[in-house]
């Protein structure tokens, strides 16, 4: 006999699987990216995707909108883009003598947003975008306008062509739930992509879930428990990224200028809950935390010049930090 909790978990996994399989009909490969985006969706966060152009980021977002039957909009950021171009603006409307300001919502008023090449926008525009991401509302013409739920922003930035761009500041990077690296597809995946996009038939994703299902999934995720010992492990990971702490990992002392913020800890645990649920558990384990650690922390650690000089990536630092924490978290029974 399955309890309510188990039923919810089973529903969650079934929905997740259905959504994912529908997406994979259209988006070939990129499993980790798809999973990361879905985690952000059910964890009520936003994703920062970093990868070369043409890797299917827009396709992913559009497909996700189709599968979840949610509104989708894409914003291509350019240096001349203004905040009103994102949030919307008030225009005069009506006939002579009865003109009024009418608010025209910007592209941000959608459930799924693809903020393409966000680092090309000016800080002013970036700030308006990121404020909307955080507050989930827009203030225009002195009036606050809430954004629709569920609300997911997938911002992309190009790791190359940094000239003429405005890299996101650390405070704004911290507002992204995950930073997902979009890799090149593998050979067999590439062949499949070419086959499916150059022929006469195109794969079409159908809607298998709704925005309400997403909100329900979020509630289920928040109900997942975490034991104090496991939470301590998560905190140890976060603290080990802080250079000034006694339990700091040696690599942190050498290469990390700024460690993770408290929001990093929140994100780590929330993401781990999603992974626990996907694994059929109602409690978070260390493995879940380890799995969530890289996408959670890689945009929250600011490496120093030495790390750059030594070609040390944040993922490498995170691996070392986890190894350091694992070494301290030994088997308490030595026999």
């Amino acid at each position: 006999m399955s309890s309510e909790g188990q039923q919810s978990a089973e529903w969650f996994r079934a929905t997740w699987g259905a959504v994912r399989s529908e997406i994979q009909k259209v988006v070939v490969g990129q499993d980790e990216v798809v999973e990361g985006v879905l985690v952000c969706l059910v964890a009520n966060g936003h994703a920062l995707l970093e990868g070369m152009p043409g890797l299917g980021k827009t396709l992913l977002v559009r497909t996700l909108g189709d599968v979840l039957d949610l509104g989708f909009s894409r914003i291509q950021f350019t240096p001349d883009m203004m905040p009103a171009d994102v949030t919307g603006t008030s225009i005069l409307s009506g006939s002579e003598g009865a003109r009024t300001f009418e608010f025209r919502p910007g592209p941000i008023f959608a459930n799924l947003i693809l903020a393409d090449e966000i680092n090309r926008a000016t800080p002013k525009t970036q700030s308006a975008m990121l404020e909307a991401m955080q507050e989930r509302q827009v203030t225009a013409a002195g009036e606050r306008r809430p954004l629709p739920e569920p609300f997911l922003v997938m911002a992309t930035q190009n790791p190359i062509e940094q000239e003429g761009t405005y890299p996101l500041p650390e405070a704004q990077l911290d507002r992204f739930f995950y930073k997902i690296l979009v890799p090149y597809p593998k050979r067999h995946e590439l062949a499949q992509i070419v086959q499916s996009t150059t022929g006469t038939t195109h794969a079409v994703a159908t809607s298998v879930a709704t925005g309400a299902d997403v909100l329900k999934a979020r509630e289920i995720v928040r109900g997942i428990e975490i034991a104090q010992d496991v939470l301590n492990y998560a905190l140890s990971i976060i603290v080990a990224t802080h250079a000034g702490e006694p339990t700091t990992a040696p690599i942190t002392k050498r290469y990390v200028r700024y460690g993770s913020s408290p929001r990093g800890a929140q994100t780590l645990v929330t993401a781990a809950k999603v992974y626990a649920l996907l694994d059929g558990r109602f409690h978070v384990s260390r493995d879940d935390l380890k799995k969530a650690a890289k996408p959670t922390l890689r945009h929250r650690l600011l490496l120093n010049f030495e790390a750059e000089a030594d070609a040390i990536s944040t993922d490498h630092v995170i691996d070392e930090v986890i190894a350091h924490v694992d070494a301290a978290d030994r088997d308490p029974v030595k026999v």
């Binding site: 428990e225 409690h283 978070v284």
Partner: peptide
Amino acid sequence: KSVDRRADLKDRLTSGLEIHDTPLSGEI
């Protein structure tokens, strides 16, 4: 905790021993 680690139980025993009186504690 030791059994969790040795048998790769993904912190099931640790959580089960510690988590009580929550909606999902019975399942855990």
